Computed example of a mutant assay.
Amino acid sequence: MKLKQLVVALGASVLAVSASASFAGKLSVAATPVPHAEILEFAKPELAKQGVELDIKVFNDYVQPNLQVFEKQLDVNFFQHQPYLDTFNKDRGTDLVSVGLVHVEPFGIYSRKIKDLAELKDGATVAIPNDPSNGGRALLLLQKAGLITLKDPSNILATARDVAENPRKLKFRELEAATLPRVLEDVDVALINTNYALEAGLVPTTDALLIEGSDSPYANLVAARPDNKDSADVQTLIEVLHSPEVKAFILEKYKGAVVPAF
């Protein structure tokens, strides 16, 4: 090979290697705006230091983030908890998996009539969400409070019909989750999702009579496909999201409305 041809060939090889390397550490992540995209934005500079360029795609729905990861348009997503992912996989025929828990948006028990659950009277009216995922979540929290016992104590899709023991004869009102803050004056207690509590001006850390902890089965997770869940870039993302710096960010920014799950 002549010298000129050798130089051209070597140059082409270097360009090919450089192009390959520039994309080797790029990771696309679907996320909902708050707090998921905010947490990812905080983690982005540290990931860059470790050679991973994070491309955050913000969504306002819960369907496309899973479909686009499944269809390999995006690498991973961060917006959902395991019960939702399980239901989505079953209903849509997908096979996405969790690669790491990040945070819990705590579910709480609120009241305008009592200051402590010990004050709850026999026959009290308790408002809970009427959808399977959140209704079961509410009943699990009431069980944790010692107010009821479920037939299956671990059933995350339990309904009021699954209550085995109700010593205080609590009366359940199953209502749309978004309406629960508005009925606080009409019931003794209501179990409310954090996002709806915040929208109603409630402060979970001070207003909730009882609130979920980091052991909640509803911890939000990063989901990936089976074919990329063990990739170096995905594992680096999880390592950074589980760092002390990210934990401190969550605690400081959200002040208990979002709780680290690691």
Rank of each mutant, 00 (worst) to 15 (best):
N77E: 15
L101K: 15
L117W: 06
D152A: 09
F79M: 10
L120I: 08
D116Q: 09
D91Y: 04
L170V: 00
A118C: 04
A158L: 11
F172V: 05
L147C: 00
Y110W: 01
H81I: 04
Q73G: 10
E119P: 09
E71R: 15
G93I: 01
L147V: 00
Q80W: 06
L142V: 00
S133V: 13
D152W: 08
D95S: 07
S154N: 14
L147D: 09
L120H: 02
L142P: 03
R161F: 14
A158C: 07
N130K: 13
E176S: 13
N166H: 00
D86K: 12
A178M: 12
T125L: 04
E119W: 03
F107A: 00
K113D: 02
K113N: 01
R137I: 10
H81C: 12
P83A: 01
T87G: 05
R92C: 03
E105G: 11
A158N: 01
G123F: 06
I128C: 06
D162P: 03
F78C: 08
A158K: 05
K90M: 03
I109N: 00
S133Y: 04
F79R: 06
D75E: 11
K115H: 09
L180P: 01
I109G: 08
G146K: 03
D122V: 10
A118Q: 15
E105N: 13
L157H: 13
K171M: 01
A177G: 10
A124T: 11
D131S: 09
D95E: 13
Q73E: 15
P132E: 05
F78W: 12
Y110A: 04
A118I: 02
E174G: 03
G123N: 06
K169M: 07
L150K: 01
E71Y: 11
S133N: 13
K113Q: 10
A177W: 07
L140N: 11
K72Y: 11
L157F: 15
P83V: 10
F107Y: 15
G108E: 02
P167A: 06
G123M: 07
I148V: 15
P83G: 08
F79G: 09
D75F: 04
S98Y: 00
L140A: 11
E174T: 14
L141S: 00
T94F: 03
L141E: 01
T159D: 04
G135V: 05
D95R: 07
T159E: 03
R112G: 09
R173H: 07
Y84K: 05
S111T: 02
F79Q: 08
A118P: 05
E119C: 08
F172I: 04
L101E: 15
V97E: 10
L150S: 01
